[in-house]
Nucleic acid binder design. Structure first.
Lengths: 187, 187
DNA sequence: CCAACATACGGAACGCTGTTCCGTTTACCA
DNA sequence: TGGTAAACGGAACAGCGTTCCGTATGTTGG
C-alpha cells in the first residue's frame, strides 16, 4: 500500500512549516526560498521536494486558519440576529485573517501563475461559505442582489492589499463601507 | 546655459515612449526591459539613460492622461448638480483610467521600492483633486465624513487590481458600492 | 570642411532571484 | 548487518533588473 514516510522526512516537513511561518511573518509570503531554507537548516531542494510550488507551502502554513474561517460561516449564521450581521461578522473574520498575513492579499490577486493554485484553494474552500451567507441575506431582503459571492470576496480581498504595511490605511473601514453599500436602503 | 539635447537622443526618447506604451498595452506595466528595448530597436542601456527607474517611464507614458484626470476634477464640480455626483463622476474617470492600464493598479499599491515614485506622483497630482471633491461633498452634507481622500483613493485603486485580466470581476460595480456606502443614509 | 570633444549608444557582464538536478547521505527492513 | 530506496544538500542553470564601459555619432570651434 502506501509505504510510511521516512522519519527524517516527517521531521523536516514540520521544521519547514515552522520556518516558513516565521519567515512569512518576518518578510511576507514572498520571502526568498533561501531565507526559508536557512531558517529551517535545510537545502533549497528539500523545500521543493515537500512543497513543489509556493502556493503549496502557503496553503500548508495557513490551512488551519482557512478551515476555521470556513467553518465559522454556518456557525455565525445560526448564532446571529440577522443574516446581514452574520455576513458582516464573517467578512470581518476574513479581513482579520488577510491583513495579518504580510502580502497574502496581494499574492491572492496576483496573476502570477505560481499563485493560481493559492487563489483556487481559497475560492474552493471559502467561496461556498460566502455564497451561503450572501444568499441568506438576500432571501431575508437585507441586501440588494446584484453582486456575486465571487465579486464580493475579490473586492474584500483587494481592499486588504497593503493594509499591513501602511498604518494610515484602514482596510476594515473600507470593507465596512463596501458592506454598507450592499445593504438595501430604507426607502 | 542648458545645452540642447542631441538630435538622436530626442528621437530615441520619443521612440522609447511609443515602444513602452505599446509594450504596456501588450504585456502590462511590468513588461521586461529587454522587451521594450527590442520594440524600440535600442539597447537596454538607452532605456535606463532616459528613464532611470520604471516609475519614470510609466509616468512619462501616462502623464497626459493623469493630467487630464486631475484637471477634470474642478470642471466636474462646476458642471454637476451635486458635489456627490461630481465625486462619483470623477471616481469613474479614475477607475476607467486604471482598469484599462494592464497591471497599473497593482503597481500603484505595490510596496516595491521601484514604484514608490509612481505612487508618489499619483498622490501628488490626484490627491488634492480628490480631497477637494470630497470636501465639497462633505460640506454639502451628502456623505459621512469619516474617510480621508487618501483612504478613498487607495481603496478605489485597490478595487481596480486585476480588473483587466478577469472579465468576471467588475471593478466599477464594487467601486460604485463603496461610493454608495459613503453616502449618508436618509434617516 | 574637419578635427576633437562631449554626448549617447549597445550589449556584455554582474548580482540576485526561482528552479532543477544529481552525487552523497540516511533511514528502513530483510 | 548489508542492501535498497528514499531523502538530502547545494552546485548549477535560466531569467530577471541593473550597471558599466568600449565604441559610435552628433555637435562645434577653427
Amino acid at each position: 500500500m502506501v509505504p510510511r514516510k521516512r522519519a527524517d522526512a516527517q521531521r523536516n516537513e514540520k521544521t519547514l512549516l515552522d520556518a516558513a511561518a516565521a519567515a512569512f511573518v518576518a518578510s511576507g509570503v514572498n520571502v526568498g526560498v533561501r531565507d526559508i531554507a536557512g531558517r529551517a537548516g535545510v537545502g533549497v531542494g528539500t523545500i521543493y521536494r515537500h512543497f513543489p510550488t509556493r502556493a503549496d507551502l502557503v496553503v500548508a502554513v495557513y490551512r488551519h486558519q482557512i478551515e476555521a474561517c470556513a467553518e465559522a460561516g454556518p456557525e455565525l449564521l445560526a448564532a446571529s440576529e440577522s443574516a446581514h450581521a452574520a455576513l458582516a461578522s464573517w467578512i470581518d473574520l476574513f479581513v482579520d485573517f488577510l491583513v495579518t498575513k504580510h502580502g497574502l492579499a496581494g499574492a491572492l490577486q496576483s496573476d502570477d501563475a505560481t499563485f493560481q493554485t493559492l487563489h483556487g484553494y481559497f475560492l474552493e474552500r471559502l467561496l461556498p461559505v460566502c455564497a451561503g451567507l450572501l444568499e441568506a441575506a438576500t432571501e431575508a431582503g437585507e441586501i440588494s442582489a446584484d453582486i456575486t459571492a465571487l465579486e464580493l470576496m475579490r473586492g474584500v480581498g483587494n481592499l486588504c492589499i497593503g493594509a499591513d504595511t501602511d498604518k494610515s490605511y484602514d482596510a476594515r473601514r473600507l470593507v465596512a463601507l463596501l458592506i454598507a453599500g450592499l445593504r438595501v436602503r430604507p426607502s
